[in-house]
Amino acid sequence: MIYSYYPGCTLKDRAKEMDKYARASAAALGIELREIPEWQCCGAVYPQASDEIASRLSAVRALMNTEEGKLVTMCSACHHVIKRTNYDWNRDADFRMKATNYMKPEVPYDGSTQVLHFLEVIRDEIGFEELKKKVVNPLTGRKIGAFYGCMVLRPGKELAFDDPENPQIIEDFIRALGAEPVKYPYRNECCGAYVALENKNCAETQVDRALNSAIANGCEELITACPLCMYNLVENATRHKLPVRYFTELLAEALGVKEG
């Protein structure tokens, strides 16, 4: 099975390992992630105002360049921006018209691309039961918490990723890899996001609360799908600390493709 793949900027640099492990794991799972040509930065944040057209164009280009019909994303932020832009495309005629007029593509985008987070591919296309069968190195005994953050979950109506108030996809993922998922209440709250740049305090408060909650509930390590959550959880952790990994690293480890 071949999927179009949008890695995003951070995965080409600070989060290289997330990309590396994703590709290795995908191969082990028998799927190919085919990077789409000439992709551009998604913009990192979804522009919420309806008259922001230009800031959504790179996402439209990615959607348009998806040859395989299904576009796989890895980074929560890229997923968020591209998924919501696709949602807009199929519902907001004004945006569709303005974007098309600006880009003047040979063939206008028909809105048919399906945006899938790699976790969704695993859940909906491969299935956790299948994944379980491919695990060669079960992570038995490890107590792992999921840090969902905001971007993959909200707004639930548009992302349609999982129940935004009680998500379980990453817990199911952890379980499939042989480890013990640990639920804690702050797993779907904000890490402090981009405000960390000028308001470290806010990020520290958020991260402190999340880590405290994770540790109190028995987490020994965390996984995330978001490089920004990763940054905050590691760099802005003051009082409490936990090892944090990308979910793809955990996957690669369980599939036995982490080294090499």
């Binding site: 900027c9 996001a193 760099e235």
Partner: peptide
């Protein structure tokens, strides 16, 4: 350490 995503968001 600062991810590109953070700078771009800013």
């Amino acid at each position: 350490n600062v991810p590109q995503q953070l700078l771009m968001a800013a």
